[in-house]
Nucleic acid binder design. Structure first.
Length: 735
DNA sequence: GAGCACTGC
């Protein structure tokens, strides 16, 4: 059953008056579209601080009356939203069905309005319970809650609040809670039936993250079992509705059109084999033939982006000299870029210039750049694909899906009409898969499986998976968990497994922490684990600075030089935390220090937050830990102490070890495959390790070990874990 | 001699 709420065709979303008036001539008397004040949203976790600090200030100033005034002002704008205009019809469906799938395009207002409609209804019928709205990203949850609180006329955290890691803005009065997928899963672990909620809204379900998929599975088992009264709304931006609908017993699908501008599509006549060259040519052509407006180019990875930026910097001047066209100013954008460089992308450009941003997929969902009128799409992206049998991740460049291509094109139509140039043929576009392969189908599911075991699921292969990751994946995860001591031979969760499931870490790292608590080096290990669980802590220096930065990092880590990256992280942490943290002006001192070593300032702040959280959890979980574990400690160069720490890591990563060969290459202990130390490692140039242990094994051009430590071969026998062959047999027979 | 993107009581 499907209901199309608006009559107009879906291809033309824009009403006449919304359409931009045509510019007189592209380069004479240019009428540039006015930039909206600040549309930039970046996934900066500091932003959560800003929001909460701001709201704290507001608490003191803002009166009840001014909140209500503001809300009634906003109501006028709300009423123009497509979702609002179909409020009654949407609510009729929601009231009369246990599950509703709602397809709302960008700008439909679904994420802000639908939850409020439900809230009104809850108030109206005097029903108990509250509403949970999940988001894949933290910033989204915070921003939505902030906005909706204003619209609702309340202080943030009052009736409307949010809950994300490190930041909880809810009170006992909160009835509408925006939260990350991960947070709702945590709540599920604590409160199996989600009794607190009468409605759960899954937003951005089309993104199909592992965590969203898991929530869908849990919700289905809840409504089929102990919570038949729980109302579920699945919201998605793309037309992948059938799968959601079928999963929930053919739930009705509602379509709400969005408010976005027309984007005209262009394709190549013949395919290209040099994508960087094609992107450059396309940008130059746009610059010569189209009106002013910025260009956003999607390329698969950093390598292509850096190449494109270099070429563009060289030719921009000549292109602009030749003809009276704007000067092209190229910018790179990817996650591992230092934040200062990332910020440049968002600053408006002045003068007769055209900003060209070469970006990875980060600009597809996580980041919005204002002023973009043209999109150039390589049709490629990089994905991490987990190989269960090999226990390694491969990084592959693959064609995108049609949904992804549409999403990329849509980036040209955020503020006005735009154009999208796809650097592939239309016939090839039609051959692309409709949707990208969901993440769970290409991921390591050790962590999800542990979560399910903790929840008490025995028959994992027949659980209510929204997307079953497959027998291989589940069996490998079970074996892995058995080897980590999280499951017993019958596949039941152990006490150790319970502890692992409660720590906000991947199971391997949880297992390392538990070991550390047993042998009395918890504090040091927590510091290292905190560093490991923050992405992009050590940024990639530009090629010119590379050697210098590496040299500086090496000179600071005396023990790290010999023992590798884990110990180096601890040494860097110690400098940041103990030495730089003491001074009067510790903040600017720390910032300068990070800058010189090409370390993310934001990253280290997150390390501290993770560390604080882990210390609290550990205190609660390991009540019997020995004294001395509690106090924080700097690491020295005592080899006994370092060995003890590395052996803790070995209990979690015993599989990730390799032995040094006479020709100075390494071969993995488990499969005998050749493996190389990643060039980003401290030990890259060190040719004298008898063995290595690594926390990550990635295959790109060849097999690379990342986060590498030196180990002695004798340690491999010292560290006792559950046997491999027996485990596999027992687990598969007991299922 | 190299680095898709997110996220956790």
């Amino acid at each position: 059953m499907a209901a199309n709420i608006n009559n107009s065709t879906s291809s033309n979303y824009v009403s006449k008056k919304q359409k931009l008036r045509k510019n007189v001539h592209p380069f004479m008397g240019v009428t540039r579209t006015k930039r909206t004040s600040k549309v930039i949203r970046f996934n900066d976790s500091n932003e959560s601080d800003l929001v909460s600090e701001q709201s704290l200030k507001e608490k003191n100033v803002v009166t009840y009356k001014s909140l209500k005034n503001r809300a009634s002002d906003l109501l006028k704008m709300r009423k123009t939203l497509p979702v609002y205009q179909n409020k009654r019809e949407i609510m009729t469906y929601i009231e009369s069905n246990p599950v509703v799938v709602l397809i709302g395009e960008t700008g439909s207002g679904k994420s802000t309005q639908i939850p409020q409609f439900i809230l009104e209804q809850l108030y109206g019928t005097k029903k108990h319970g509250s509403i949970a709205v999940t988001q894949p990203r933290r910033v989204a949850a915070i921003n939505l809650a902030t906005r909706v609180a204003q619209e609702h006329g309340c202080k943030l955290g009052d009736q409307v609040g949010y809950s994300v890691r490190f930041d909880n803005m809810t009170t006992a009065r909160t009835r509408l809670k925006y939260l990350t997928d991960g947070m709702l899963l945590r709540e599920l672990m604590m409160n199996r039936e989600l009794k607190e909620y009468s409605v759960v809204v899954i937003d951005e379900a089309h993104e199909r993250t592992v965590l969203t998929d898991l929530i869908l599975g849990f919700l289905k088992s809840l409504i089929q079992g102990p919570r038949p009264d729980l109302k579920i709304i699945v919201m998605s931006a793309t037309l992948q509705a059938e799968k959601f609908s079928e999963f929930f017993n053919n739930a009705p699908i509602l379509f709400v059109e969005g408010r976005k501008f027309d984007v005209k599509q262009y394709y190549l006549k013949a395919p290209t084999d040099d994508i960087v060259d094609a992107v450059i040519r396309c940008c130059v052509q746009i610059n010569q033939c189209e009106q002013l407006g910025d260009i956003l180019c999607f390329l698969p990875g950093q390598e292509e982006i850096d190449k494109a930026v270099t070429i563009m910097e060289k030719i921009a001047k000549y292109v602009a000299d030749e003809t009276p066209v704007p000067l092209i100013v190229p910018y790179p954008l990817y996650a591992a870029l230092p934040p200062i460089q990332q910020a440049l992308v968002f600053a408006p450009i002045k003068g007769f210039k055209r900003k060209v941003v070469f970006s990875t997929n980060i600009a597809e969902t996580s980041v919005t750049i204002s002023g973009v009128k043209f999109v150039v799409d390589s049709g490629l992206r990089k994905v991490k694909v987990w190989r269960h049998q090999l226990g390694l991740a491969t990084l592959l460049t693959v064609p995108i899906s049609q949904a992804s291509a549409m999403q990329r094109s849509g980036r040209a139509g955020r503020e006005s009409e735009g154009k999208s140039f796809r650097l592939y043929c239309e016939s090839d576009y039609l051959k692309l898969p409709k949707q990208s392969e969901p993440e769970i189908a290409r991921s390591d599911v050790t962590s999800p499986v542990l979560m399910l075991k903790r929840y008490g699921i025995n028959d994992l292969l027949n659980w209510t998976w929204f997307e079953n990751p497959g027998k291989d994946a589940v069996l490998m995860a079970l074996q892995e968990l058995y080897e980590l001591g999280a499951l017993n031979t019958r596949g039941k969760i152990t006490k150790r497994g319970e502890q692992m499931a409660l720590l906000p870490l991947q199971p391997h790292l949880s297992s390392v922490l538990i070991k550390a608590s047993e042998v009395g080096c918890l504090s040091q290990v927590i510091d290292i684990v905190s560093c490991l669980s923050v992405e992009n802590l050590l940024l990639n220096p530009s090629p010119e600075e590379r050697d210098e930065v590496n040299e500086r990092r090496l000179s600071l880590s005396n023990a790290g030089k010999r023992y590798g990256d884990l110990i180096m992280l601890k040494e860097l942490f110690d400098i940041y935390f103990y030495e730089l943290g003491k001074s009067q002006d510790s903040n600017s001192e720390r910032n300068d220090w990070c800058k010189g070593l090409c370390i993310s300032v934001r990253g280290f702040k997150n390390v501290i937050r993770v560390r604080d959280q882990l210390r609290v959890y550990c205190k609660r979980l390991f009540s019997s830990i020995s004294e001395g574990n509690e106090e924080s400690k700097k690491i020295g160069e005592d080899s006994e102490e370092i060995s003890k720490i590395l052996k803790c890591f070995l209990t979690g990563f015993i599989k990730n070890t390799a032995i040094g060969m006479p020709d100075r290459s390494y071969r993995t202990v488990s499969t005998g495959e050749p493996i190389s130390i990643h060039p980003s490692s401290m030990l890259f140039l060190n040719k004298s390790c008898p063995g290595i242990m690594y926390t990550e094994y990635v295959f790109t051009t060849k097999g690379y070990a990342r986060n590498v430590s030196r180990i002695e071969l004798s340690w491999l026998q010292e560290v006792v874990t559950n046997g491999t062959a027996v485990a596999k047999q027992k687990i598969s027979s007991s299922k």
